[in-house]
Write a protein that binds this DNA or RNA. Structure first.
Lengths: 126, 126
DNA sequence: AGTGCCTACTTACCAACAGTAACCAACTCT
DNA sequence: AGAGTTGGTTACTGTTGGTAAGTAGGCACT
């Protein structure tokens, strides 16, 4: 996948288009949606349940961005009621591992982070 | 690091404290700052140069959050002019690999994402 | 003594984005 | 006719991010 144009891509440069991609894949909801879709296909309402706390608006918006960038595939089945299914694309599947790593990191380091936070708070308060 | 409390942590639940951690480590600037600090210690102004496009305000803000959560260590040296150095903590270093993976993904999949985008745009326009 | 320069921040302001809640359309079931 | 289902959209509002200018502490040059 590393073609000629990729050699000049550097997310540390302000104008670099990879910044926009990084914004999406690092995004709060994208991480969770990719994780929720990791086990396979899911309907809109299923995602709404699996990713607790996401609003319909943000789910629609994030799924649209992900579809636009080729991370998920949206399939509409003309049933009653209408069925809209989302699946990770080939590219999207390559993201599951890196993003799951972030999830794992958050869980594994939670207690350490929490300890650091309370220590920090007491340091600035005292 | 997976202690008793970690068993109940689930970022797919709305109130879960790992959500806050995920927000930080997935954040636009955090990914780049961790990457920039990967090679070692850096001063404030160095980071400002390495992470092109970040403002002083956002650099300060992100570094403060990272310090608070124990990802970076801030050392002030009373020289003239004052020297403030930032280093990744032990925990912070464990983040470099997962976050570099995201960087790599962005670079490797850039052309595919760009193609998907233009195809998507023409589909909704036509 | 005054002007300027250095680093590392703050602060004020504004625009963009995320979140909340209500509404919509199509169709079924009772 | 009225309620319920799915998969949205829209209006409003609050929080966040970005821009630019100001600040503090210290030296150095004139």
């Amino acid at each position: 996948m590393l073609d000629a144009s990729a050699r000049e891509l550097d997310p540390y440069q302000a104008g670099c288009p990879t910044r926009r991609i990084l914004d999406l894949i690092g995004g709060r909801w994208t991480v969770l949606i990719v994780g929720a879709l990791g086990e396979g296909t899911a309907r809109f309402s299923e995602l709404l349940r699996r990713v607790d706390g996401i609003s319909q608006k943000m789910l629609t918006q994030t799924l649209r961005s992900m579809e636009r960038d080729g991370l998920v595939i949206r399939t509409v089945t003309a049933e009653v009621p209408v069925k809209v299914e989302y699946t990770l694309s080939e590219a999207g599947r390559t993201l599951t591992e890196p993003l799951r790593a972030l999830e794992r990191w958050s869980i594994e380091h939670f207690s350490g982070v929490a300890a650091s936070r309370s220590e920090y708070e007491s340091r600035i308060a005292g």
